[in-house]
Write a protein that binds this DNA or RNA. Structure first.
Length: 524
RNA sequence: GGCGCGUUCGUCUAGGGGUCUAGGACGCCGGCCUCUCACGCCGGUAACACGGGUUCGAAUCCCGUACGCGCUACCA
């Protein structure tokens, strides 16, 4: 049975590169009807684990990457928190020691440092002399009598090569002699990452280790540990990095400042900040950052868009297929088609997927996405609105494809506030009204026509205007822009007649009157 | 420094000796549509890192160079 795992450290956020790794693990497991396991690598005495774990769990859930074993759901191979597996790690160390795959080392840091420097001075690569290695209890007792304490090191082979087949990279070969005698247990008895990770992978019967490329060079020592534990190593697949926008550097959450110099990234961040500000969310780089998954949820991106985008970051089915349902990606995903070179994160392309999935979304679901934003921004309810859902539904319909991210529902506050409360764009007001007497005159005439138009619906309204314009011998452009500014305060927006219908007769007239009187009272 | 991995349009990629005058997508540019803005549609721009081989023939195989990244911790 295929068993894959995603093993994040509880850091308080889910990194976009981590999501891609999780996604590929999830897809591979689902494709093979196997299990996707979530293991929390909370080494050391980490505090507030639940606090730092929560964003990771909720992020994965939001994306729909469900796990078969792990926190909350349990499983037969638990516990799924590394911190609760210390005894197993200790047992693994004992096994390695007993099998001659590891030894106790009594060197002091200073002695080690001296050896290192000596090697360096000679221009040679440092390889520990094993001078303070203790393989028998007698030797150990002798060192301890000198007051020394031990760490446990791997007793790595010093000749031959470690060959393995990486499912993505093919045959890979490392000389054993290049490997250090890595420490696997500290002097205080705690275990290090490689030991814990391998011991857990072995105990959990992980069949395929799919992880980022940074671990490729670590694989020989891990294979060595697997062997020492008497466990067949799993298959390995090393994914290329998710790189910074426009570079080959690994994407990191700590470099937001740098990424903000990338115009596309900056635009995406800025856009998110505007939405967050409108609903009073914090926008500190630590928590609000396009490198962290929460960002997308908070701003109103669709999980399907993010997942589809991430799928194609390092994987492709063929030369043209771009959109995949979950079912399709599960069906078609194979490691053989994963790329070997880093893929840089492109905010624009993500947005393109977002647009696509947003367009596909049924109206009822769009409503459900928009409502929380409008509520959070206190745009709902307004005194004029007795049926908020219906009103927002009409608004969304009029918006069409203009709202690409759910948070952009907040871009049209003028439709939600009192008729006297929205501002006029100064430039637009001057151009279309204050300095356009012909337009104002037309608007006056049309206002009275509007007052008499029944029913007050987009189609009828458009007809009315066309007739009006014709009878006046004018062109539609001479009045419609003035009308838009008068009614919304803006020079751009939805179709004019849809806006009028949404607002209704009374409010439309009130707004026109407000604009007209403003022209009169404050002439240019 | 040593070892490993990588290098096709600005970006994501297709390509696994001839069908490649290198295909698709995003972006960008131009046009159409149009009450504005979006959407949509049409068209255009743009790449095999470099140098040697192998071969009748190389983006595809081999070697070297350059560049990038990773590992080389009592970090993960």
């Amino acid at each position: 049975m295929v068993r894959t795992r995603f093993a994040p450290s509880p850091t308080g956020f889910l990194h976009i590169g981590g999501v891609r790794t999780a996604l590929f693990n999830w897809l591979f497991a689902r494709h093979h009807d196997g299990h996707f396991i979530l293991r929390i690598d909370d080494t050391d005495e980490q505090r507030n684990v639940s606090e730092t774990l929560d964003p990771i769990l909720s992020g994965l859930r939001w994306l729909g990457l469900d796990w078969d074993e792990g926190p909350d759901v349990g499983g037969d191979y638990g516990p799924y928190f590394q911190s609760q597996r210390r005894d197993e790690h200790q047992a693994a160390v004992a096994t390695l020691l007993a099998g001659g795959y590891a030894y106790r080392d009594y060197a002091t840091p200073e002695e080690l440092q001296a050896e290192r420097q000596a090697a360096q001075a000679e221009g040679k690569r440092f390889i520990y002399s094993r001078r303070w290695m203790a393989e028998t209890t007698e030797q150990a007792a002798g060192f301890e009598a000198e007051g020394r304490t031990a760490v446990v090191r791997l007793k790595m082979p010093r000749e031959g090569v470690c060959r393995f087949r990486d499912l993505i990279r093919g045959e890979v070969e490392f000389e054993w002699a290049q490997e250090q005698d890595h420490v696997i247990q500290r002097a205080d008895g705690s275990c290090l990452y490689h030991l814990a990770s391998v011991a857990d992978d072995a105990a959990m019967e992980i069949s395929h280790v799919i992880r980022a490329e940074e671990h490729l060079s670590n694989t020989p020592r891990q294979i060595f540990i697997f062997e020492g534990l008497g466990h067949e190593p799993p298959e390995f697949a090393h994914l290329p990095f998710v790189a910074e926008p426009g570079s080959r550097n690994k994407l990191s959450k700590r470099k937001l400042d740098k990424y903000l110099k990338n115009p596309d990234f900056a635009k995406m961040h800025q856009h998110g900040v505007a939405i967050a500000d409108a609903i009073g969310l914090e926008t500190a780089a630590e928590t609000f950052n396009p490198v962290i998954v929460d960002f997308y949820e908070k701003v109103g991106y669709l999980p399907d868009a993010l997942v589809n985008y991430l799928l194609l970051l390092g994987w492709a089915l063929d030369d043209r297929t771009e959109f995949f349902s979950r079912q399709e990606m599960i069906e078609y995903f194979t490691l053989e088609r994963v790329n070997r070179s880093p893929a840089s994160f492109d905010p624009n392309k993500l947005l393109a997927f977002q647009e696509h999935y947003m367009q596909e979304m049924p109206a009822e679901e769009r409503l459900l996405l928009a409502l929380p934003f409008l509520e959070a921004a206190a745009l709902l309810p307004s005194p004029y609105v007795d049926d908020a859902s219906r009103y927002v539904t009409e608004m969304l319909q009029a918006a069409g494809d203009r709202i690409k991210v759910a948070g952009e529902s907040l871009d049209y506050p003028e439709l939600f506030v009192d008729d006297g409360a929205f501002p006029y764009e100064a430039k637009a007001f001057d151009k279309r009204l204050r300095n356009a007497p012909e337009s104002v005159a037309l608007l006056r005439g049309f206002r009275d026509l509007l007052a008499a138009t029944e029913p007050f619906e987009a189609v009828t309204l458009e007809e009315a205007m066309r007739r009006f314009v014709e009878s006046e011998g004018a062109k539609i452009g001479q009045i419609i822009h003035a009308l838009r500014v008068a009614v919304t305060g803006k020079s751009v927006g939805f179709g004019m007649f849809e806006i009028l219908e949404i607002l209704g007769q009374e409010r439309s007239l009130a707004r026109i009157d407000r604009a007209l009187s403003l022209v009169e009272t404050t002439p240019s």
